[in-house]
């Protein structure tokens, strides 16, 4: 039954204007494709060209410079630290959002009184502007008079104020926490929607066969929501990696690059310095890395059979 869902119908009735049928998917996708190509093709190609150019905005001296932009990046002593932060930031944020989102979705699965209201409330963080959340976190985690320290002191968890945003390690932690806070509802909604689409009768049938809850979870639930999880994880990873607004607002990468990620570095250093060649080089590295990640991820999770 589970497999049924995956079945891709092939149009077989050739007598019915077969050629027209073959064109249908293209026609349906045409508006989307045209829009995306028009808007994304140029910047995409441009960024690959600029990556190999000396390209400072406003400077008349523009021309190819081989791998200079990449060399400039690798010459930065902090690159190792930045890459490490990037990986930690992405993995912790994605994993945190996923695990909490899944837990929340499972807890919300079965009806209970007041579920509607409860849901409307727990999903709210998603509706906030990132920079407002960032500001709020920066300010709540202020080491001297932030509400977090005050609360932890009152609860007896800490004895001395912690300079959250001024301490290596902690500053990245605050960013990740803010990221998770914003992103949990998204995972929860996606997974919950997938959970709700599992037909009841499958579980009934499994119960009659004597399957336990754990078995049911792994035999029925997981396979059913797997495609959703894969796509959501993939898209969120891309999105989280690329988003730097929280980082810029909360710590601006500090102290001393301890919470800097590669996209935030690209934004604050390269674009703000009008160095589009340098920025594009970083962009190309990011895009390549993400592409490789995407392909491996889809392969490992066996998703591509549906693509």
């Amino acid at each position: 039954m589970v497999q049924n869902r995956k079945k891709e119908p092939i149009i077989v009735k050739r007598n019915q204007n077969y050629r027209k049928r073959m064109m249908e998917p293209y026609a349906l996708l045409m508006p989307v494709l045209v829009l995306l190509l028009v808007v994304f093709a140029v910047p995409l190609i441009n960024s690959f060209i600029m990556a190999f150019q000396k390209y400072r905005l406003g400077s008349p001296d523009i021309g190819f410079n081989g791998l200079d932009n990449f060399r400039k990046l690798f010459a930065d002593d902090d690159l190792g630290l930045i890459l490490k932060n990037t990986v930690i930031y992405v993995i912790c944020s994605v994993a945190g959002q996923f695990v909490l989102g899944l837990t929340l979705a499972l807890a919300l699965w079965k009806k209970f009184k007041g579920r509607g209201i409860y849901q409307s409330v727990v999903f709210l963080p998603w509706a906030f502007s990132a920079f407002v959340v960032g500001l709020m976190f920066r300010w709540s985690f202020n080491g001297e008079y932030g509400v977090v320290n005050d609360l932890l002191m009152k609860l007896g968890v800490i004895k001395e104020n912690i300079a959250w945003l001024g301490t290596p390690g902690y500053s990245l932690f605050v960013i990740i926490l803010a990221m998770i806070w914003i992103g949990v509802p998204f995972f929860a909604i996606m997974i919950l929607a997938a959970l709700q689409s599992i037909p009841e009768d499958i579980y009934e049938a499994a119960s009659i066969d004597g399957a336990g809850a754990v078995k049911k979870f792994f035999r029925i639930t997981v396979p059913y929501i797997k495609p959703t999880i894969i796509m959501t994880l993939l898209l969120r990873t891309i999105w989280i990696l690329n988003s730097f607004d929280l980082i810029v607002v909360i710590t601006n990468g500090g102290p001393a690059n301890y919470s800097m990620t590669l996209p935030a570095y690209m934004y604050t250093r390269a674009f703000s310095g009008y160095d589009f060649g340098f920025a594009s080089a970083i962009g190309v590295i990011l895009m390549t890395a993400l592409m490789v990640y995407t392909l491996i991820f889809l392969k490992v999770t066996n998703y591509e059979e549906g693509m």
Binding site: N142, G143, E144, L165, G166, N252, G254, P255
Partner: peptide
């Protein structure tokens, strides 16, 4: 303040 290392 210790945290002013990250103040603007």
């Amino acid at each position: 303040p210790e945290e002013s290392i990250n103040w603007g």
